[in-house]
């Protein structure tokens, strides 16, 4: 398992990366941490002509908290975010979810933007972005645009990012003061891909739930004033709407049961 041949460029700025993407389009692939792309290269599932390495571009690394949001440069590693001092206060959901991404050795390289652009339906960061209604900022020679989570991730391993665009920043809204979060994941072994992952947020009597690992991308539902058996009914309806399928890890039926069971636990955990 060795990668096919490609040219390699290490860029120092967003501008250089965007220029190369404009030149090479879909012949090029951007590599940041490479924790998803390198396995795909090793297995020759992708065969780019040019690999554009953004990991050393200083402006693509770092975390800034401003008024209402936390803005994370795309090539910030998952472990750098996990070590960020403001995480627990501003993004408590991510403080719970990040330790589930791979292993600490892969989080040392794996990046926030990389995971979102890879768009695996069972990944933790796309799930959190969907629940928190975060925004991905894309740059190309044509300009800058910001896409909401649901407009960014459109399917399995598929985003709305064009071939000449670079994800530069991710904006997560800061947690509202009265918000309570819960994160649940079922996997065979810590660090494996989630069979089903859920994130819940409660503000007063409004509950929002995101589910990953079942549909083609994380799906979100919101309810108000749910109580008792109405919670079970809502979760059952949601589980059927997700349209999961059978694979080697679990059947669709098993996944629906996980949504119902872990959904109940997650919602209960946020209850006052």
């Amino acid at each position: 398992m060795k990668p096919p041949r490609f040219d390699y460029v290490r860029v120092e700025s967003i501008e250089q990366a965007v220029e190369l993407l404009a030149q090479h389009g879909d012949e090029a692939r951007v590599i940041a941490g490479g924790q998803s792309l390198m396995p795909m290269l090793n297995m020759r599932l992708v065969r780019p002509q040019v690999l554009i390495d953004i990991a050393k571009a200083a402006e693509l690394s770092g975390i800034k908290a401003n008024g209402k949001a936390v803005s994370i440069a795309a090539a910030t590693t998952q472990n750098a975010l996990l070590r960020w001092q403001g995480l627990r206060a501003h993004l408590p959901l991510l403080a719970q979810a990040l330790p589930h991404i791979g292993h600490f050795q892969t989080r040392n390289r794996g990046t926030v933007g990389g995971s979102l652009c890879h768009a695996d339906p069972s990944s933790e960061l796309p799930l959190c972005l969907a629940l928190l209604e975060g925004v991905v900022e894309l740059r190309s020679r044509r300009g800058t645009r910001r896409l909401a989570a649901r407009d960014f991730q459109v399917g399995v391993l598929t985003t709305a990012k064009q071939a000449d665009e670079l994800a530069t920043r991710i904006h997560f809204p800061k947690a509202p003061e009265d918000a309570v979060f819960a994160f649940k994941e079922f996997h065979r072994r810590h660090g494996d891909f989630a069979v089903v992952a859920l994130a819940a947020m409660r503000c007063g009597n409004a509950v929002r739930l995101a589910v990953g690992g079942v549909g083609d991308r994380p799906e979100v539902r919101s309810w108000c004033g749910l109580q008792g058996s109405a919670i079970d009914d809502a979760l059952n309806e949601f589980a059927w709407q997700l349209g999961g399928s059978d694979d080697i890890h679990a059947t669709a039926r098993y996944r629906r049961e996980l949504v119902r069971h872990m959904g109940r636990l997650a919602i209960a955990e946020t209850a006052p």
Partner: peptide
């Protein structure tokens, strides 16, 4: 495994443990 799962190739890069099968020498 050469795809980051088994951990046999783990080394320290600038003090941090990483998979050396998921990195290129030129990096």
């Amino acid at each position: 495994c050469e795809h980051g799962v088994c951990g046999a190739c783990t080394i320290l890069l600038d003090g941090r443990a990483v998979r050396s099968c998921l990195m290129l020498a030129v990096q």
